[in-house]
Simulated assay, not measured.
Amino acid sequence: MHLGIDQQSGLVGLDSPALPVVPRPTVTQAKLIKREEDWSDLPTGVSHSPMSWIFREDTFDPVTRTRRGRLFQPEGAQPAQYKVLPDPYEDPHGRTVGAQGRTTKNLYGYKACVSLLQEPHRGLGLKIALGVRDASSAWRIIQTEVVANGCVMITLKSLSAFGIIPAVDMSKVPAEFEPVVSQTVARALDSAFRESPTSVIDQCRNAIAAVLSRWMVDQGRDRSILGEDLMKIATIVGQPPFAKGVASNLAMVVARLHSRGKTNEVHSKSLRVPVDEDAELALHALGFALRDIGWAE
């Protein structure tokens, strides 16, 4: 199975690719993310980056935040001439039809993405970016299969901190603390699923420390707490008069995860190096802290 994208109109065809697809499907450029640097090397549009992979979406579930569709890789020189049936959107009366009822089009041509099948575990668990450099989203490949017509079908799970880290209600944050709180939370949000797990955990650790310490000062705690590390802050916030036990325990977990980003600490204590799931745990901890102290919208 092949896919073609018209160089001029962006209309999509399949199967040689001679058959126009009606209604027009959602197609997105795609790139595997194997290291942080890959985020700066995303495609910039089909006409500028025709050799990128293409994802054709078949279904999207906003509740589970999953997408299912077919993945294609470039085939030969781009673009190339193809004999295709006229697209009913572009030529409803068939005025451009030539021999054998077909017309000539310059298409960006793609074939089933067998390259993904050569990755470890056929790509399961890998991170993939959809979109272009100016606007993209991160997804996890949770299922890969080859269907009867030879297409590579994948199921994707959204990787997004939106919904995990709530928006901060700045009307509840003391004015003097607004810049620090907004900046630290924004950095954690920006790092989510785009930077290394260690970096994400570090940003979450910084944000949780900033949020909890400033909330305690707003509640009457001495300002010296602003200079303490997260473990000390977590201990104090779990005690009376604050008694935020769950937020305290989660903050301690993030503090311990942070130490696992230190090479010597990992070696001396035979610790496991943080992975993406650990970073997601740190993001959830930050979101919980914001909700628990009442600073979330």
Rank of each mutant, 00 (worst) to 15 (best):
N264A: 14
Q73W: 02
T184D: 09
M1K: 12
M216R: 05
K34T: 13
A243M: 09
G245E: 13
V185Y: 01
H93K: 11
T59K: 13
I154S: 00
M1L: 14
L19R: 09
K244T: 09
G98V: 06
I154W: 00
K31G: 03
Q100D: 11
V152P: 00
V180W: 02
G94T: 07
S199F: 04
E280I: 06
V97E: 10
T263G: 06
D278R: 03
E297P: 03
L189K: 14
Q219P: 05
V27C: 07
L71N: 01
L283R: 00
R187K: 14
L130Y: 01
I293V: 12
A30Q: 01
E75L: 12
T26I: 15
R65F: 01
V253R: 05
G109N: 05
S137D: 11
Q29L: 15
V152M: 05
K83G: 09
N249T: 13
A167P: 03
H121V: 12
V27T: 15
V200S: 01
G238H: 04
A243F: 03
S160E: 11
T263S: 10
Q7A: 15
V217H: 03
E265K: 06
P25V: 11
V84I: 13
V275K: 10
A210V: 04
V246E: 13
R291V: 05
